[in-house]
Computed example of a mutant assay.
Amino acid sequence: MRQVALFCIGGFFGFLIDAGIVQFLVSSFDANPYLSRLLSFLCAATGTWLFNRRFTFKGVRHYGHLGEWSRYLFAMSGGFAVNFTIYSTLVYHTTLAQRLPALAVAVGSLGGFVVNFSASRLWIFRHRKG
């Protein structure tokens, strides 16, 4: 339960990064909400990786920083695919999400949570026996 709670806290920080960047880019620069989301995901995933490696899944490391970060981004891409599908559907079909893409990020984040936690716990930060 501790890991789930900490993963949620890290995910909340990631959401703030993700939603903040995409909302800033769309509102301030009239940026494409789909392309903006790719940049915001990269920033958010890096932030959650830093949080999760320090607090949620602390322990022995089996990869260097770059190796762990790249595996983490790869693992999070499954959750991002779910997240981005929901996000894109909302942005495409609703004017509210077009004006406030941060809301669509929030809904999409719920969909990607299970995939991301499973990938983190079972692959990136798993404890090896022996």
Rank of each mutant, 00 (worst) to 15 (best):
F24N: 01
F12I: 07
E68C: 06
R37C: 12
F57G: 06
V60L: 11
R54H: 04
R54E: 01
T56P: 08
F74V: 15
H62L: 11
G64P: 06
S77N: 08
M76H: 15
N83E: 11
A44C: 02
R71V: 11
L42K: 04
N52R: 12
F7T: 09
R2M: 03
Y34V: 02
R53Y: 04
G47S: 08
Q3N: 07
R37E: 10
H65Y: 14
E68K: 06
V4A: 07
A45P: 08
P33Q: 08
A19V: 01
A5S: 12
W49P: 05
F51A: 09
L16G: 04
I9K: 04
R71P: 09
G14D: 06
D30N: 14
A5C: 11
F13D: 03
F84T: 02
L16Q: 02
A31Q: 01
P33K: 06
V26Y: 00
I9S: 05
C8I: 14
L73E: 10
C8S: 15
K58H: 13
R2G: 00
L35K: 12
E68P: 03
V4C: 01
R37N: 15
G59K: 03
Y34R: 06
L50R: 10
V26M: 01
N32H: 03
P33N: 09
F51M: 08
P33G: 03
K58I: 08
L39N: 06
K58W: 10
F51S: 06
G47C: 09
G11L: 15
L42D: 04
V82Y: 04
N52P: 05
G20I: 00
R71E: 14
T46L: 14
L35Y: 09
S27H: 08
G10C: 02
R71Y: 13
L6H: 10
F55L: 04
I17R: 03
E68M: 05
G79H: 02
G14R: 09
G78Y: 12
T46M: 11
Y63A: 14
H62M: 07
T56R: 10
L35A: 12
H65S: 13
S77V: 02
Q3E: 14
G11C: 15
R2N: 05
S70R: 14
G59P: 03
S70E: 10
N52A: 07
F55G: 00
A81W: 06
D30A: 14
A81E: 07
R37L: 11
Y63D: 15
L66Y: 11
